[in-house]
Simulated scan of single mutants.
Amino acid sequence: MAEYQLITDTASLKALCRDLEGAPFLAVDTEFMRESTYYPELCLVQIASPDVAAAVDPLADIDLTPLLDLIVESDILKVMHAAGQDVEIVYNLTKKTPWPLFDTQIASMALGMGEQISYAALVNHYLGISLDKGARFTDWSRRPLEKRQLDYAVADVTHLAELFPEMLEQLRQTDRGAWLDQDMQRLTDPENYDSPPEKAWRRVKFQGRNAEALGRLKSLAAWREREAREKNLPRGRIVKDETLADLAGHPPKDQSGLARVRGLSKTWATNDIGERLMFAIEDAEPLSADEIPDKARGRPRLGPDAALIADLLKLLLKVRSKEAGVAAKLIGRAEDLERLANGEREDLPLLEGWRYEVFGEDALALVEGQLSFAVKKGKLKMKGKPD
């Protein structure tokens, strides 16, 4: 295990950040707990350059500002693996996202290593090291942390700092670095992590397009979001999604009716939180037509022919992704394939840039009848490739 520092005071953190300022890149990871809270509780930050490694303890008497500034304000490239939750934590603390950012899980898709390669598999592939998973389920909020736990946590960034240059060289050799730009920008879009209560209803699965029911769902989801934030509890600990959807579709006439709602305690018929829930129902207004998203409007179902074309596009995507040595998910999503099969052409990423070259051009040719599949000597072949 490479040497590293455990940082528990602000002066030491400032000194660490000065040492890291000239680094070519920073490998960053976090350990957190979120099972019983609305906001993830940050318990440890691991950071490494090619020469320096450290674990920073946010639960100590420490001001994280120097570290957060280094992550969100500096031009140094930040390297993470499956960075979504780490970026969320940084955003919650700063209202900014790390940039520039390199996510090794996304990069692995461009290098043909599957759609969601684990960090352990990535380390084994590039470094030939089998990671010790013994501390994976550690309660990171308990203090003191054992050396074994810290070694495990810091290894995540020291190994990342070792394998990143190899991945980068592979991307350069294959000329695929630019393939990642759009996905990295999407990953760091602040809108992904900004959750205004008024938009919370979009995360709840709801069948139907009734404007009044959707309006109640919007009001109820906003109410639940505020309750969860105020109490710092997971949304589901307030009211589960399925109960929220049921209330939106079949609202009780008065608070006493909450006693008969599956998923709620009978005490809600008389307590304060039940009263606040009923206010949310009573204050709801029908959702305006322009607010109803495509899925709630009932995205037009694919007809028999379009459904067959979508299936053929999925087959073509498998063929082309295998040939290109890139994960199919990085090229196109099932929703985009269905939109293409349905006749849409605007705002489809698979018809732009490198995706068009790898797959989109042939996908259009297939949809327009210029390309077809054939089986020759037991192997799948393409016929009628466009000029």
Rank of each mutant, 00 (worst) to 15 (best):
M1W: 09
L6R: 04
A15R: 12
L20F: 09
A23Q: 03
D29K: 00
E31D: 03
E31V: 08
E35G: 15
Y38P: 01
L42A: 10
A60I: 06
L77M: 12
K78F: 11
E88G: 01
I89E: 03
T94A: 07
W99Q: 06
L101I: 14
D103I: 02
S108D: 05
Q116T: 15
S118V: 13
Y119N: 01
A120D: 15
A120L: 10
V123T: 14
L131I: 08
F137S: 13
T138I: 13
W140H: 07
S141K: 12
R142E: 14
E146G: 15
L168V: 02
L168N: 13
E169N: 07
R176F: 09
G177H: 10
A178W: 02
L180M: 07
L187M: 13
L187G: 09
N192L: 09
Y193I: 06
D194I: 00
E198C: 00
E212K: 12
L214N: 02
G215R: 01
A228L: 07
A228V: 03
K231N: 11
L233V: 15
D241Y: 01
A248E: 08
P252N: 00
D272S: 14
E282N: 13
A284W: 04
E285V: 08
E291S: 08
A296P: 00
P304D: 15
I309E: 10
L313P: 12
K314T: 14
R320E: 14
L330V: 12
I331V: 15
R339I: 09
G353S: 10
D362P: 01
D362F: 10
L364V: 05
E368T: 10
A374K: 12
